[in-house]
Design a protein around this nucleic acid. Structure first.
Length: 139
DNA sequence: GCCAACGTTGGC
DNA sequence: GCCAACGTTGGC
């Protein structure tokens, strides 16, 4: 099982919107970046990811589960763009802010820190565990 | 709202 | 295939 991080602007689509989709979840569509798309193509059922609020909040607020494999993005006819389906798994007891991540000595190599523009990115297991602990959430 | 960083496009 | 111009993202 692999671990990821999904970014979204909460005023467009935030954690409450993801929760509202329920157990059937929905497409993580609208990604128009090759690196992010390639990451989604690598995803398998049961993979999990952090849900990160960019711009407003700048914090990780919950965990999503990949429930649908990579397939064409229904919001475009352009065959280049694929997406996966995800559903909310659980919220963080405490959101983990970008500031906190930046200032944690073991998290300075995170993609979120190194390449802040990549909207779908891999997370290392040790990073996953540290952030879950900071959020007082089960891994 | 600004701007730096990054990705993409298109002319050559 | 290079690179300048342009557009977008996202932190501040």
């Amino acid at each position: 099982m692999a671990l990821w991080l999904f970014k979204s602007e909460p005023d467009v689509f935030g954690w409450p919107d993801q929760v509202a989709l329920g157990d059937t979840g929905g497409e993580w569509h609208g990604i128009r970046n090759y690196q992010a798309r390639n990451n989604m193509r690598l995803m398998q059922l049961g993979d999990r990811g952090f849900f990160y609020h960019s711009s407003i909040g700048k914090e990780i607020v919950g965990i999503v589960e990949v429930i649908g494999p990579s397939h064409p993005d229904s919001t475009t006819d352009d065959p280049r763009w694929d997406c996966v389906n995800v559903r909310a798994q659980r919220p963080f007891a405490h959101a983990v802010t970008l500031d906190k991540i930046r200032n944690h000595p073991a998290l300075t190599e995170m993609v979120l820190v190194k390449n802040s523009r990549l909207s779908v990115q891999p997370v290392r297991p040790e990073e996953w565990d540290i952030i879950c602990a900071l959020g007082q959430t089960e891994p």
